[in-house]
Design a protein around this nucleic acid. Structure first.
Lengths: 336, 336
DNA sequence: TTGTACGCGTTATCAA
DNA sequence: TTGATAACGCGTACAA
């Protein structure tokens, strides 16, 4: 099990070449403590001469710090490949983490095996903190994080993890804006395709819908499904049409749901937006792929990533930051 | 700079609790060497009792191995966010690396600063090997890899790096297939929007185009641009129309170029595919976004990722693997 | 089958 | 301002 490359130079070698002690070299390297200009010059020459590069395993061992932060993406294949939000979050997190001289390490959870391996990676002390994207409540990775008290932050808001701060968006306010607009553009019978009412995001979107409609809210026009999926959109829209054939406005709880709804409407011979106005949520890849393109809520992905990174960094400094809720923008396209 | 958590248990603690020596615990942990069933049982109990978790910094230091492999993504924002190929490559690499009990660590290069930081990360011995996606020839990261002789593999084929094996596709054969089909479906005046002729991929695509046309090849109908970009597509298509107003088939060197070409054709009042058939290359996000959707060359992304991972793993075992060229599939959609 | 003792390459403490 | 020297936590010959 010999390593293939040549043996790397150590501080010891540098010290010998420079005619100083290891301690002096270390101080020069880290800019900490005193070191004379002359010694520094000799050390720098020696470093170049022997091709020294610091051994981080040794450094991490003694410093109990890795200068690395994990970015755990916990999505089914499809979403990871398609959802532009994930990429934006990643870039935002990376920017802040890099600025703080840490290294971002992206860990992909794509199977149960992956979850186990990533958990033990986090437990293994390879990173000083972690950003968790779209984790669920019962999540092996989150368990590990909580158990070892790894400084971490969620992007999104899984319930039942009060110990870990999160970066969320104001689902309720966004839903309110969307629904109000539907109403103000003349829609009289407005329904909602609600999803995941057992999660905060789902419940809050329904609450915002209700807020906007006030006394005109009609429980009969809310059709629920456990999932934020295309198929959920098809089936709930079909059911909504059955309950209220004269529906002319629909708030779908996500873009995928909206896409399914549009398909169901088309099958039923309705046109969008003429017969029925449809709005979605997330501004995911679905939004532009739909025909017509979806009016939807744009998530400030990069800013969410930046905020999550700051949450972790602050914990690294010993602080106990509060969770963050970010405002959203609604983008009006052609579907309503 | 005290760490926030409680002090973690060490092999020493486990040994004390189990009433054995540190050496025995270590052997039990790694399944190497002899250890009695009784001792093993006591050790396992002790591990659970004190909540031991191995310190990898120490382990890496002594073993000179990290069990981690880097995945360096070196793309401008846009591409990273949009190109589904990257995600596929990532998932493929992750699967193989995980199978080999290594951890994949994704490093995003999104700026010059990032390049410097990632380079020093690789130099720092945090990973045992690396997969480099779409690196360019003059690349700080590749320099680092070559210099420290880190076991690595490219996805794609940058020139001037003979020391590092790569996973590529047969650009020439794919271009030949595409062009032949254009010819066989009755196109008489077929042009090519060539890009990046200074790179192997660009040169090979042109060579395949020429192969397919044989004696009917007309240099006049090849318009070149340095970039694989949408704008390159617009300008080269415009120029091609100027040179040959009767052109009825176009091979664009990438999907982005094809998208630009379609736009230019539309501006010129030509319809696709009726007036002019257009084919692209890559099966990227552009392909489906185009109207009509593009006929193009599908890259076997996951398999490319798997192959690259294998290339690295083999080097870790001391072998010297050859570069790999993978076959591609052409997907026929509506643009030609 | 088990225990002892050394080495991995740094950083940090403290006396000089 | 510098140099010894002690950790850091683990794997592993080698001896028992």
């Amino acid at each position: 099990m010999t390593s293939p490359g040549r043996v790397r130079a150590t501080v010891h070698d540098v010290a010998a070449h420079a005619g100083v002690s290891r301690g002096t070299v270390s101080r020069a390297l880290n800019g900490t403590g005193y070191v004379s200009a002359e010694a520094r010059a000799r050390i720098e020459a020696a470093i170049a001469e022997v091709g020294y590069v610091r051994n981080n395993a040794a450094r991490n061992l003694v410093m109990r710090k890795t200068w690395a932060i994990g970015f755990v993406v916990h999505e089914p294949h499809q979403l990871f490949l398609e959802d532009p939000n994930i990429g934006g979050i990643l870039l935002g997190t990376n920017a802040v983490v890099a600025e703080a001289d840490h290294q971002l390490v992206v860990l992909v959870v794509d199977s149960d095996d992956d979850a186990a391996r990533v958990s033990s990676y986090l437990r293994g002390g390879f990173v000083d903190g972690a950003v968790l994207v779209s984790a669920r409540s019962h999540d092996q990775v989150a368990d590990a994080v909580e158990e070892i008290r790894l400084p971490a932050a969620f992007v999104g808001h899984p319930e039942g993890r009060p110990a870990i701060p999160y970066v969320g968006i104001d689902n309720r306010a966004a839903a309110r804006t969307l629904t109000t607009r539907l109403r103000d553009t003349g829609r009289r019978r407005i329904g909602m395709l609600a999803s995941a009412l057992d999660r905060d995001s789902g419940a809050d979107r329904l609450a915002g819908f209700r807020d906007a409609l006030g006394p005109r809210f009609d429980e009969h026009l809310v059709v629920a499904d456990p999932l934020y999926s295309y198929h959920a959109g098809v089936s709930t829209m079909t059911e909504l049409l059955r309950r209220a054939p004269d529906v002319d406005g629909v708030f779908a709880a996500s873009d995928a749901v909206a896409a399914g709804a549009i398909e169901a409407l088309r099958s039923a011979g309705r046109t969008v937006p003429d017969d029925v106005g449809v709005v979605g949520f997330d501004d995911s890849a679905w939004a532009l792929r739909c025909n017509p393109p979806l009016s939807t809520v744009h998530q400030p992905a990069a800013e969410m990533g930046r905020a999550a990174a700051r949450l972790v960094l602050e914990q690294l400094e010993g602080r106990t930051p509060e969770s963050v809720t970010l405002p959203t923008d609604v983008v009006w396209r052609d579907s309503a």
